[in-house]
């Protein structure tokens, strides 16, 4: 009797499906842990993006304006100026029957973010900037709703 019950429990657990599936997380975004710049200094900061195997995200820019390009936005601060992100070259794929290529990213790639510290920044302070990464992912057969992930970038101001 016990084993029959255990069998049912195992079957229920193995076959269990969440009633309302949560948004599937297929992208991770990792800003560098330590950005150190002097007042007046500038750098291109590499924001590492990793897409789960089997998935791709729409590149930036997209060729079909209806699609949602991956977009990184980080807010500037009084002492830190953020430039336009530079996105890598995209991979081209074509769906069967489509007349237009799709431009996508998969695997691991970097978005380069220009960062400039003002001359009036105070050495020794660390400034944390907030931003967001918006993307829309698909695998070979399904597309997921667009997702916006929070991004946080800390810049430490060094002495001259």
């Amino acid at each position: 009797m016990f084993w029959r019950f255990a069998a049912l429990v195992v079957l229920a657990l193995v076959g269990a499906v969440p009633g309302g599936a949560r948004a599937l997380e297929v992208v991770t975004v990792t800003p560098p842990s330590g950005v150190h710049l002097k007042p007046g200094g500038e750098a291109r900061v590499a924001i590492q993006i990793v897409v789960k195997p089997g998935y791709h995200v729409q590149a930036n820019p997209v060729e079909n304006p209806s699609l949602i390009p991956i977009t990184l936005k980080v807010e500037s601060d009084a002492n830190i100026s953020i430039g336009e992100p530079r996105y890598p070259a995209a991979k081209r794929i074509r769906l069967p029957g489509d007349s237009q290529d799709l431009v996508v990213y998969d695997g691991s790639f970097v978005i380069a973010l220009p960062v400039q510290v003002s001359h009036s920044a105070t050495a020794g302070e660390t400034i944390t900037l907030r931003g967001a990464l918006r993307y829309q992912a698909c695998d070979d057969s399904h597309c997921l709703f667009p997702v916006t992930l929070p991004v946080s970038l800390s810049v430490a101001v060094k002495g001259r």
């Binding site: 499906v17 969440p18 599936a21 949560r22 948004a23 599937l24 399904h142 997921l144």
Partner: peptide
């Protein structure tokens, strides 16, 4: 039903 691509939201499964 949820046994078809269980990781996805049901609306996502139906798109296209």
């Amino acid at each position: 039903p949820p046994d078809f691509v269980p990781d996805l939201k049901r609306e996502e499964v139906m798109i296209a």
